[in-house]
Structures are given as C-alpha cells and as structure tokens.
Design a protein around this nucleic acid. Structure first.
Length: 600
DNA sequence: GCCGTTTTCGGCCCGACTGTTTTCAGTCG
C-alpha cells in the first residue's frame, strides 16, 4: 500500500471516529498524522522498514503501528472494524455542505437516512424538523447543498482531466499505427472544468487503435467501440472519447472537435461567405474540390485568418482579431521569471523557505515572493509580530546563500470584514509586497464584497489582490463580487490582480480577461504554493491567463527582476498606476472589439 | 492519540458564523 492510500485511510479513521462521537482530539490526531505523511519527503516504505515512523511529528506509537500494518499487509483490522460500525452512506451524507459528523449521525440513527436520495426525500417531507438541532433553515440549506453537490457530478477539474488525458495520449502515441494524436475539446481549450476527454488520432488502421484504446489499463468500462469512434469510462466516471481519422482529415477534425461550438459556427459561417464549405472532414469549394490543409494554421490561412490558439476559441472576438492579424502573443510558462504568493512552514506550508527557494531556482526562476498568512488566519498558522520577525530573519539568512536570486519578503494579509488589513502600518511597511485576500466572513452582499476588496486595494501597501472571488471550483461559489468594478479600481490604483493557479481556484476567472486588458490591468500568475511541488501549478494559471488574452507584458511575474523591483517600488511610493518602462498604454485596440462575456 | 523550554498529565489552533436555542452546538476555514 502506498502513501496516498495510507493517508486516505488515516483521514477516514478520523472521520469515522468523529461520527462515533470519539474524543475530538483523537480524531484530529489521525488527521494530523495523515497530513504529516502527505508532507513527507522520504519513502514511506523505507521509513517503516527502518522503524523510524515515530520520528515523524504527529505519528506516535499507536498510529505508527497502524501505518506499519497498512504498509505491510494492505489492510488494517481497526479500520475495517470502524467501517463495519458506520454504514458508508453516512460518509456520503457528510459530503453535503453544512452536514458534519454530528448531524450525519442523527440522520443515520434517528431517521435511518443512508443516501443522498433518502436525505432529499426526508427534507421534502419535513421529517427533519422533529429532531434536535434541525430547523426549517437547516432543511433548506441541506436541499441547497444537495443541488450544489449534484451539479458537480459529471464535471471534472482541468488538472485531473489533463493528467488522465496525457497518459492516454502517450499510450496512443506509442502505437506504431498512430501517425498523429492530440487531445481536443474543452481540455485543449484549457477550460477550468471539463465534462469529458476528447482525443483524436490520425491512423490508417483505426480498428487496431480502437482496440488498443478500449483495453488501456485505466479503462473501467467500454460504452461504445466502432471503427471511427469509441467511448470509455475511466475511474471516477470520467468519459473519454477517441475518434480516428485519416492523416489528410486530421487538421479539420482537430479543429472541429476542439470547438468551441460557438467558434466553429462562426468559422463555418465565414467559410460559407467565402464560397467554401467546412466540416470535420475537410474544406471544399462549391464545386466539391478539396482545399487540402496540412495543419490548423493552414486551415485558418485558407480562410484569411491568423492561426487562433485553442485557448481563445470561444467566439469572444478572436475571429475578428485573427482577421486583422492582431491576435495577442499569449503568455507562455517559459515567460515566467519568478512568482509571488508562496507559503512556507512558517504558516501552513509544508516546506521551508530554503526549500521553496531551491524549488524556484530549479525552475529557472530569478525571484520568489514569500507570503505566509497574517495573524487573523489562525487556522492557517498566521504570523504574529514576533513570529513574523523570525520569519523575515530566516528569509534574510536564506537570501545570503543564494546570491543573484531575489527573495521578496511579503505576506498574504487577510482583508478584514470592513476592508482594512490584518496588520498595521508599522508591520506592512516591512514588506516588499502584499497579497491581500479574503479568508473569512464570506457571506456578503455584492456591494459589501466589492467595497471590501476596493477598500483593501486603496491601502498603498497592497500590491496584489489574491483570489478575488474566493471560489473553489466544483465545491464553493465565490462571494458575489462586481469584478468589473474591482478590475477598474485595481487598474486605477496600480494593484495587480492574481490569477491564483491552484487548480481548485483558477481565480480570477478568464472570462474577465478582455475587460481587464482593456482597462490596462496587470495580473500575476501566482502558485499559492504550500509545498515545493505546488510551484508547478503555475502551468494551470498560465492556461487561464492565455484564455484571458494575456500577454507576457501584462503579467508582473513574467517581467525581469529589475522591472518588478521598480514596479513594486513605485506602488509603495504612492505613484499610483505604475507601468514598466517601455510598456505603452494598454493595448485597447485589440481588446475592445467585443466586450468580455460576464461570468456564468 | 500526540506531545513536552508548561514534560508523563492535561492541553491540543481557534474565532466566526449559523441556526438553533434561551446560552449553545455544529460546522467551517
């Protein structure tokens, strides 16, 4: 049994104990042990073999014994006994927002509810009201939580889908019968949420490729298998479709299956106006003669358009821009020179300052901005003044060991309910940068949330606005914010808004990109990393920034170090909307033909 | 169940919010 499985079981034990009403600290102990294992740098099996498990902080003699059993035998009698005492349906109930162990236990023991369907039924029949702790409002909240939970079924986060798709793509690529292979669909367009995987191959032996595809080890179930198209289900219910075409058809099929539907419709309309017919098999004149294209670039060229990157194919003005050959050169991961918004063990990170810096250097970055949590973020180990001083001394010490690499001292400072910041002037002035974020009191009206964010940005110490809506994809709606007003204020004040690259956040939303560009907003593609591996999440942020039409010059952490230092300095000295030298006015000409579509 | 410059017992991260209560329990981050 590997580490991830052990972590999962320890967490589950914590939950099962909680449902049984065990001492809460005992439950926490199991979760802490799971967390400690997650942050482990060493091989778990080796640790067990050497009898050094108890050296891990959070793992004592009892849990160490259980881990050893799990690693050695793949099972744990204690865990199985707990599972036999609590039906699996109870754990299912706890997935509903607002239902914790206590309420789930009451639903189970007093009402015999063991499924989401039964829970909904009971709410509709007002059967919850008779029980202590349940009122009208609770019942309504549960029904709402059920809607939210079910709406996430059949949807997958980009990073999950991308990882699965890449495995399949590599397997297909290794097949000698496959000439070309690509992902398509919303995944290729880098949407933050995808419903299924679309893959496309060019081959002369489609049946053989289909045979390979449906029998890949990750396939759980075959939905359909034909010579040109097969569909399978992967673990977790993710559906993957593979289509096979000839090499000559490949560019047209790739374009067609990449979409979006709206983009395709617009492109086909354009072809028709030019006396051409475009479909997934080719581009033809009215007399039926084919216009061969070797790739998508040739296809667009044949229609009098510059090649449109997949990320932009949402019919949000990209065709007009391509027609005038003024599509932006989109930011690329290789453009990033560093990053801000990184946590360390000083707050809730899993790696030290030195380790995070080493990770950044290994990526070829020239600078890194450390921002642990501020004092009000107690649950995340926020730093008080004394601890902050020690953290900053630590950063100074690490900085001396990495000449030529710049470490910026900052903080992810909580924006308090009234829009003020969680540190006073004396402390704020010790930072090179400040990421201001909301982490508490999410229930606000749109006016309150918008005012709160803008007031925070008016503080001259604030350089970046962190995850502006607080959303967690497929999990939690963000607070309602008038993002247009926030973007205008940020651009005016010279504050850059973060595109938080954590795959659950990807916040700010890309749909605001055109508007943001028009206003001259600067953005940051920041990892919000809590461990070294989290630095790589910037690739997801880059995908969103590309969908948002962002160029390297719009992205603060794609700037060279000297430019970033100047920019931070100007903001601090109250110069307002500072821009890097040589960077002209916002490129409004290629950003305002079509207003950005509102979120949703 | 874990841990120790508060050290073998007694605290453990804790404040805000919500909905339920009539002084607080449960949930969340």
């Amino acid at each position: 049994m590997d580490r991830d499985q052990v972590v999962h079981i320890l967490n589950e034990i914590g939950t099962l104990l909680e449902i049984q009403g065990e001492n809460p600290f005992k439950c926490i102990a199991y979760r802490n042990a799971a967390r400690a294992l997650e942050g482990l740098h060493e091989d778990l099996a080796a640790l067990v073999a050497d009898g050094r498990l108890q050296e891990v902080k959070g793992v004592g003699s009892s849990i160490a014994g259980k881990i050893a059993t799990l690693v050695a035998t793949g099972a744990l009698p204690y865990h199985e006994e707990l599972r036999s005492q609590v039906p699996p349906g109870v754990l299912e109930l706890m997935r509903v927002s607002g239902l914790g162990p206590k309420k789930a236990r009451i639903l189970w023991l007093d009402l015999g509810i063991l499924s989401l369907d039964a829970l909904e039924q009971a709410c509709r029949e007002n059967r919850l009201l008779a029980h202590a702790g349940f009122g009208q409002k609770t019942q309504e909240n549960i029904l709402q939580g059920l809607v939210q939970l079910r709406s996430s079924v059949g949807k997958f986060l980009y990073h999950v889908a991308a990882e699965r798709a890449e495995k399949i793509r590599l397997a297909l690529e290794a097949n000698p019968a496959v000439r070309r292979v690509s992902t398509a669909g919303s995944l290729r367009r880098r949407k933050e949420i995808v419903k299924d995987l679309d893959l496309l191959v060019a081959t002369a032996d489609a049946p053989a490729v289909m045979e390979q595809f449906v029998h890949l080890p990750e396939v759980e179930r075959i939905l359909a298998q034909g010579p040109t198209r097969s569909s399978v289900v992967l673990p977790g219910g993710l559906q993957a479709d593979l289509r096979a075409v000839s090499e000559a058809e490949f560019p047209f099929a790739l374009h067609y299956f990449t979409g979006s539907k709206e983009h395709n419709t617009a492109v086909r309309g354009r072809a028709r106006r030019m006396g051409l017919k475009l479909n997934e098999y080719g581009l033809h004149r009215e007399d039926g003669t084919a216009l061969p294209c070797s790739d998508e670039a040739a296809l667009y060229r044949a229609l009098g358009l510059a090649e449109i990157p997949p990320e932009l194919r949402e019919d949000l003005g990209e065709i007009e821009s391509a027609e005038q050959d003024d599509l932006p050169r989109l930011v690329d991961e290789a453009d990033l020179r560093g990053a801000f918004h990184v946590h360390t063990t000083w707050s809730d990170g899993r790696n030290s300052v030195a380790e995070m810096v080493a990770g950044a250097r290994a990526r070829g970055w020239r600078y890194l901005g450390i921002s642990d949590h501020s004092k009000s973020a107690v649950y995340a180990g926020g730093l008080d003044q004394e601890k902050l001083a020690r953290q900053q001394a630590d950063i100074d010490a690490v900085a001396r060991t990495v000449p030529g690499f710049r470490i910026f001292k900052g903080s992810e400072v909580d924006i308090l309910p009234d829009g003020s910041l969680d540190y006073d002037e004396d402390i704020l002035s010790t930072f090179d940068f400040v990421v201001a974020s909301i982490h508490s009191k999410f229930k606000m009206t749109e006016a309150e949330a918008t005012g709160r964010l803008i007031r925070a940005m008016e503080n001259p110490h604030v350089t970046f606005l962190g995850h502006p809506t607080g959303r967690l994809l497929l999990d939690r709606e963000g607070y309602p914010v008038n993002m247009h007003a926030v973007i205008e204020a940020a651009a005016h004040l010279g504050v850059a808004i973060e595109i938080n690259s954590h795959p659950l956040r990807l916040d700010m939303d890309w749909r605001l990109g055109r508007f943001a560009r028009e206003k001259g907003l600067r953005i940051g593609i920041f990892p919000d990393a809590h461990e070294v591996g989290g630095l790589a999440d910037v690739r997801y942020g880059v995908g969103i920034a590309r969908k948002a039409w962002m160029r390297a010059e719009d992205v603060v952490n794609a700037w060279e170090l000297d430019l970033v230092e100047k920019w931070l300095g100007r903001r601090r000295s109250g110069a307002g909307a500072a821009r890097p030298p040589g960077d002209g006015p916002p490129a409004a000409d290629d950003a305002k033909k079509k207003p950005a579509r509102k979120k949703g």
